[in-house]
Design a binder for these strands. Sequence first.
RNA 1: GGGGGCGUGGUGAAGCCUGGAGUUCACGCCGGCCUGUCAAGCCGGAGGUCGCGGGUUCAAAUCCCGUCGUCCCCGCCA
Length: 597
Amino acid sequence: MGDEPLRTDAAGALRTADVGRSVRVAGWVNTRRDHGGVVFVDLRDASGIVQVVVRPDEAPGLDDLAHRLRDEYCIAVTGTVRERDPDNVNPEMATGGVEVVASDMKLLSAAVALPFQIDDRAEVDEVRRLAYRYLDLRRPRMATNLRARSRAVTAMRRSMESQGFLEIETPTLIKSTPEGARDFLVPSRLRQGSFYALPQSPQLFKQLLMVAGVERYYQIARCYRDEDFRADRQVEFTQLDLEGAFWGQDDVFEALEGVMAEVVRELKGVEIPTPFPRLTYAEAMASYGTDKPDVRFGMAFADLGEVLAETGFQAFAGVLADGGVVRGFNAGDQGLSRAGLDGLVERARGSGAKGLVWAVAEDDGSLRSPVAKFLSDAEIAGIRSTLDAAPGDLLVIVADRARVAGGVLDDLRRHLGQPGGHDELRFLWVTDFPVFEKMPDGRLAPAHHPFTAPVDITEMEESPETAISKAYDLVLNGAELGSGSVRIHDSDTQRRVFTVLGISDEEAEQRFGWFLRALRYGTPPHAGFAVGIDRLVSILQDEPNIREVIPFPKTQTGTDPLTESPTPVGDDQLRELGLDLRPEVRAALEEDRGSRE
RNA sequence: GGGGGCGUGGUGAAGCCUGGAGUUCACGCCGGCCUGUCAAGCCGGAGGUCGCGGGUUCAAAUCCCGUCGUCCCCGCCA
């Protein structure tokens, strides 16, 4: 085709307005329909699909090539846009009113037989998808997700820029300060025996930018945490990281509500109501048993301890499963099956309950329940009013310590609850997190990183267990989208917080001395946040796991089936870094290599 | 570290519980026919060490043990 362009038009953009034009289109053979004479080729490029027609009477020389075409061949077509006969219009296609009648066609690149079909009809084994990710990404689902992600990030940047934020990059080879998540380490060649870490977040660098007078910083930041995988967790992930000087919590919320609104507008074409509702951590735990409640449906809990004070049970909590929205049940017609209820009890046991009591609110104000006969009329009325139970509602009651009961009821609530609308998006701020979290074994662990400002440093020193910090999470449909806090901006408070968290002065100096020094140079009050982009996009795209919105993700064991990383490296490479493998590791590697041969 | 699910021609599934010939379905692939289809159609064909190893049995895709891979969950993720 010489110096002429391979392509004049995007395949998916051709419309009846283009009828009569000479065009060149190029892309992949999405499908071919070879009638022996006429051959139809659905040509796909990044913009969409258009039908190409090769007719022996109109382009005699193309016959041979047209019959040889196979799926995913890469071709270029020269032809004329023609309006389809009314009988042949395909209303399913954006370009369905037209077709390109080929006058010339070139094979740019053939394709061997595919490992799976390039469509969304079958759930292909994920390892195979990842091993051929470049083909998987051609599938409509993934191609759509890639584009949605790009648009989401663009919307974020648009919002950040309009709010006067500066996009600034921070280093990804940094000092290791192990705490919380495990660091990924990178050995230093020039300083053998020393290591960089990959950042778990740009936290301290963005705080330095506040000291530096940037005032409004943001970054689309890749972060690394060497912990086990989940559907919503990869070891490397991307965050919208931001920080503002002279800011408090409300400023962060307002900025992020603007960002979220812009992203949702871009991807879903709807306006979400702002400001987002807020719950304190204590309220969330009391009503939902979790710090990331899904508020698309009701079914909040209530403490029945007072109502049932006479029964001798120590503590009761209850959940109300609203009659109309209980998954798997039709509570309204009294049709709760015994098996279904037994399944609930079994499920509750699985999540730690010693038992579970169910009850159905009857029309006449009574309760139908295995324990109804042990309850007084006043107790029954009290339960119904405390839970605001309507006739037909299913009530489940767990008697246990608040934490256990909350966990069990949270699980049941998530299991039974059904969102109203399919596309419903319910953002929620959760605020006032405790400084410490009580671990299952009873010991205290810092709930956030040690640069989070306490509400009151003196109170924190006096009663750390109940102290509240200026930390907050953003929750969307029951998923934690991200978290942030008002930061400590003076080195004295910072040292006192370290002390409460059990970090000695020496340890603090050795790990964070460089940062503490910075705080002494007129640091403005500041606050910030980080949003998990993978999670956000996966929810907006209605994908069950974040791998579907990450172009090249890793498997649960941290491998990449495409490149087969990670792999052992040679001794020469190790020597250069001043490293050697432990003998048992070396032996295991050699045994493994032997068994492969 | 722990619990659970899955692994069957290139792809997806059924078969497994209750052992009896590599059996079935859809897609793809190869060949043939076919000039208006759009998941084209029709005819024919090739293609499998039932993840791997061991055990039980006259007999194992099927039952048992182990192992590898993968997914989901708990722990973990300041």
